[in-house]
């Protein structure tokens, strides 16, 4: 041979046949029973992950929507509460004022009545007093008239005594 070829770089046909056989078996078995289910599962899972992510995103948006809705509701509720409180305060004030008015009126009326009663009592007392004074005057006059002229100084004493006896109750 002109050029000595190292057996290392000379492909051995027997080994090539076996390599072909081995590779074909591997390609067939793995292609049918391994790659197919594996790739199917992987792509299904990837699809599933994508779907889940999309769903999560959707749910997140819904949550945000819900949250903002809640906030609006909360604000409305707060406003309503403030409104109700304000109204209640107004009603309370009104009621207190009314009650005060009524009380004042009632008190005024009672006062007036009382005054009236006092006036009446006073008038009655005065009339009674007048009557009693009149009676006493008549009585004293009668006694004086009975002891007439018996004793002049004694008479004067007696008048003094009677006068003292009169007590204007």
């Amino acid at each position: 041979m002109l050029l000595e070829i190292n057996p290392l770089v000379l492909p051995d046909p027997g080994l090539m046949i076996w390599s072909t056989l081995a590779f074909l078996i591997l390609l067939f078995v793995l292609g049918k029973f391994a790659w197919k289910p594996i790739m199917k599962a992987i792509s299904e899972r990837e699809q599933g992950i994508n779907d889940s992510l999309a769903t999560a995103e959707k749910v997140r948006a819904e949550m945000a929507q819900l949250k903002s809705d809640n906030e609006i509701l909360l604000v409305q509720a707060r406003e309503e509460r403030a409104q109700i409180l304000k109204e209640a305060k107004e009603i309370k004030d009104k009621m207190i004022n009314e009650a005060k008015e009524q009380a004042k009126e009632a008190a005024g009326k009672i006062m007036a009545d009382t005054q009236q009663a006092i006036e009446n009592q006073k008038m009655a007392a005065l009339i009674d007093l007048k009557n009693q004074v009149g009676n006493m005057v008549v009585e004293v006059s009668e006694k004086i008239l009975r002891r007439e002229l018996s004793n002049k100084p004694e008479q004067e004493n007696y008048i003094k005594q009677l006068t003292n006896e009169i007590k204007l109750n």
Binding site: L8, V9, P11, D12, P13, L15, M16, S19
Partner: peptide, 9 residues
Amino acid sequence: GNIAFTLTL
């Protein structure tokens, strides 16, 4: 590292 194998592939 055998040339027959690599040639086959």
